[in-house]
């Protein structure tokens, strides 16, 4: 834990600094190059020309978890892979975020009933920030998930003590 992190009371200085740090964090969410199944194809489409994820500063896909902020679990997580997903999540430096993309990663999806080898939702392995519905989700849906994640980061406390009312310093996204 940082020397000042979560130790200060709320005042105009800490809220401004928190705003700045949150702005930086939400403006440069670098995802990890990491795809598990067919949702990954849609994830690639988000990075490609038509739905350009780089517009939000989130287009710098990093190949190593050490430099990534966001893990987009794109696809079916089976038990063999769950161990690796967990390890990759652990190897990311905090603050780290997870988007569960698609029905399989959210809750097992079509494999819920008979998929003996499928984890029924990646949230049983790693904490998930945003769930994106769809099978697979459209690229627009993933972009909306990214914006939801940005809203979530925007509300988080950095220097301030946690547990303040949510949205204490909520700045809406520019339209």
């Amino acid at each position: 834990m940082g020397l000042l992190e979560h130790r200060l009371d709320e005042n105009v200085l800490t809220t401004r600094i928190d705003w700045l740090i949150n702005w930086a964090r939400l403006s440069s969410i670098w995802p990890m190059t990491f795809g598990l199944a067919c949702c990954a194809i849609e994830m690639m489409a988000v990075g490609a020309a038509h739905h350009d994820m780089d517009r939000f500063g989130a287009g710098a896909f990093r190949a190593t978890p050490r430099q990534a902020d966001l893990m987009i679990v794109a696809g079916t997580v089976n038990f063999k892979m769950a161990e690796r997903v967990k390890r990759l999540y652990e190897q990311m430096p905090s603050p780290k975020y997870v988007i569960a993309m698609g029905a399989c990663a959210t809750g097992g999806g079509p494999y819920y009933k008979y998929g003996y080898n499928v984890v029924k939702g990646v949230d049983r392995v790693v904490p998930v920030d945003v769930y994106v519905a769809g099978c697979p989700p459209r690229p627009e849906a993933l972009l909306e998930g990214l914006m939801k994640l940005q809203d979530k980061i925007r509300r988080s406390a950095v220097l301030r003590k946690p547990g303040l009312p949510e949205g204490a310093l909520f700045v809406p996204a520019p339209s």
Binding site: L20, A24, S28, R55, G57
Partner: peptide, 22 residues
């Protein structure tokens, strides 16, 4: 054929500053 960073500051000019602070 993409646009590149455009939401962070005018023309995305503050993108590198956001990256640096992050």
């Amino acid at each position: 054929c993409r646009i590149g960073p455009k939401r962070v500051g005018p023309f995305g000019l503050l993108q590198s500053i956001a990256d640096a602070i992050k």
